[in-house]
Amino acid sequence: MSSFDDPNAVARYAEGPVRQVPGFHGMQKMTELLLAEAVPTDGHVLVLGAGGGLELKAFADARLGWRFTGVDPSAEMLKLAAATLGPLAPRAQLHEGYVDTAPEGPFDGATCLLTLHFLTADERLHTLRELRRRMKPGAPLVIAHHSFPLDDGGRARWLDRYAAFAAASGVPEKDTKNAAAAISARLPLLPPEQDEALLHEAGFERIEMFYAAFTFRGWVAYNPG
């Protein structure tokens, strides 16, 4: 059973990103501001990997006219998203599944935060293409996930820094080392230049990095139009 399907792990989910992702709240705020440059005040935003509802709530709190479609493969995480949204929940439609089963839109903008690092390069390219297909011309996509140099000892060096940040944020040191080892062994990690190349290959333009924090990188890109 995936940790995202374990009710106990899901209940503790909200504790994790703040302690493990440097500048987590700032990254969410920057994502919302980047979306707002192009998404109208009554816009509809697709959030892929919406389980937990943390970014849904941050966006909904900040932009009172936006509507959301949240997609996630975990029913337990979507339950948590609904609970996290609370009274804001009517503004978000939640769908259990993957990008292939996401509504067609077209959407005024889209996000995929802390999700793509679970996918292989081929799966990422497919996901990015399916996201772009569901977006209006000129719509922005914001992504952020593990993406860091992997050569010349970069994998070990940057994962040590990831673990050090989590430990400094209150995560037990043993747990931080186990998490870093699991990321190295289980995630199909890619370096930033390959992530950018996939965005180009998927057909996006005006690709800009906006976020870099130890092992994490984030980009904004636009559907041509």
Rank of each mutant, 00 (worst) to 15 (best):
A82H: 15
A197P: 01
R206D: 15
L150V: 06
A83N: 12
A50T: 15
F165L: 11
M135Y: 04
L78I: 11
V71S: 08
N223V: 02
L34I: 14
D195Q: 01
A156M: 08
P137I: 00
G65R: 12
E55V: 15
E130I: 00
M77P: 10
A202Q: 02
G109S: 10
V18F: 06
A36Q: 12
N178S: 11
T41P: 02
V71T: 10
P22H: 13
L128N: 01
F107H: 05
P106V: 09
E208L: 04
R155A: 11
K29M: 13
A212L: 10
G65W: 12
P106Y: 05
C112I: 03
T120C: 04
R217Y: 00
L125C: 10
Q93W: 00
V142F: 03
L56A: 15
L190H: 05
L131E: 02
L56W: 08
E96N: 02
L94M: 13
M1R: 09
N178D: 14
L128Q: 01
S184Y: 00
A110K: 06
R124I: 05
A197K: 10
V220I: 15
V21L: 12
L141E: 08
G138I: 05
E196H: 14
P40N: 06
T69N: 08
F210S: 10
T84D: 10
I207W: 05
E37K: 12
G26N: 12
A185G: 00
A167E: 14
F214C: 09
S147N: 03
A60S: 15
A179Q: 13
V142A: 12
V142E: 02
Y13W: 15
A75H: 04
G49A: 14
D108I: 04
S3C: 03
P191F: 08
G16K: 07
P172Q: 03
V39W: 05
A181Y: 00
P188K: 06
L198H: 03
G225D: 01
A180C: 08
R67I: 04
A102N: 02
P90F: 04
F24A: 10
F214R: 14
L190Q: 14
E208I: 00
L85I: 11
G97E: 08
L187Y: 14
S2A: 11
A221I: 03
G86Q: 07
V45I: 14
H44A: 06
A121P: 05
F4D: 03
L35H: 10
A102V: 01
Y211N: 09
R132S: 03
A166S: 11
L128M: 04
G26W: 13
H200E: 14
F68M: 15
G109C: 09
V171D: 01
R161H: 09
L187V: 07
A14P: 04
M27W: 08
L131R: 01
F107R: 05
A75V: 08
K177W: 08
D151Y: 10
N223M: 03
R124N: 02
P172C: 03
N223C: 14
